[in-house]
Simulated scan of single mutants.
Amino acid sequence: MSQKVNVGDKAPDFELVKPDGSVFSLKSQLKDKNVVLYFYPKDNTPGCTKQACEFRDQYEVFKEQNAEVIGISSDSSESHDDFERSHRLPFVLLSDKDNKVRNLFGVPRKFGIIPGRVTYVIDKNGIVRYIFNSMTKPLEHVKNALEVLKSIEKQ
């Protein structure tokens, strides 16, 4: 069942297995850092590759803002591993094969079938501070998330 997470809501906790076999927990990650959680449709597609590479290129800036970037799609861990390696992605991609986490956050589908592209900025307290939903503007996800993080760190 799909819920809709809104700005100001507490982000739902979840666990997914990382490509290396260890478990990622949102709650554990938030102990130390803000999290930029981005859902994307598919590995190695033009828009998703642009978006992932832009997150890669700005990764040091995200770290300076005390944030970790996490990508999620329904692709397999093997697909994520190849995608990470071929584009030298320094952040974790998680496999949400059955769309449980996507549904937990209420990420919409385009035309009811294509998994949506939505980015959430979650502060260290677990509060969703920003949501950006755009299939056609993958690079704006990165730019906007950085702007929000800079404002959080100033507070």
Rank of each mutant, 00 (worst) to 15 (best):
S2V: 13
K4C: 04
G8N: 14
D9S: 13
K10V: 15
D13A: 13
F14D: 07
L16E: 14
K18A: 15
P19S: 14
V23T: 15
V23E: 12
F24L: 08
S25K: 11
K27M: 13
L30P: 09
K31D: 12
K33T: 13
N34T: 08
V36C: 01
P46S: 12
P46F: 12
A52C: 13
C53I: 14
E54P: 03
E64H: 11
N66E: 10
E68P: 02
V69G: 04
V69M: 05
V69E: 00
I70V: 15
S74R: 10
S76A: 11
S77M: 10
H80L: 05
D81C: 09
F83I: 07
R85C: 08
F91C: 04
L93W: 01
L94N: 01
K97L: 08
K97A: 12
N99P: 00
R102D: 00
L104A: 11
F105R: 01
F105H: 02
R109D: 10
K110E: 10
I114G: 11
P115T: 04
G116V: 01
R117Y: 07
T119H: 03
Y120L: 02
Y120V: 05
V121I: 08
D123R: 08
N125V: 08
G126C: 10
I127E: 10
R129E: 13
R129M: 09
R129L: 06
Y130P: 02
F132W: 09
F132A: 04
T136M: 11
T136Y: 11
L139R: 14
H141P: 06
K143Q: 14
K143E: 15
A145K: 05
L146R: 14
L149V: 05
S151G: 03
I152E: 02
E153C: 07
K154T: 13
Q155K: 14
Q155T: 14
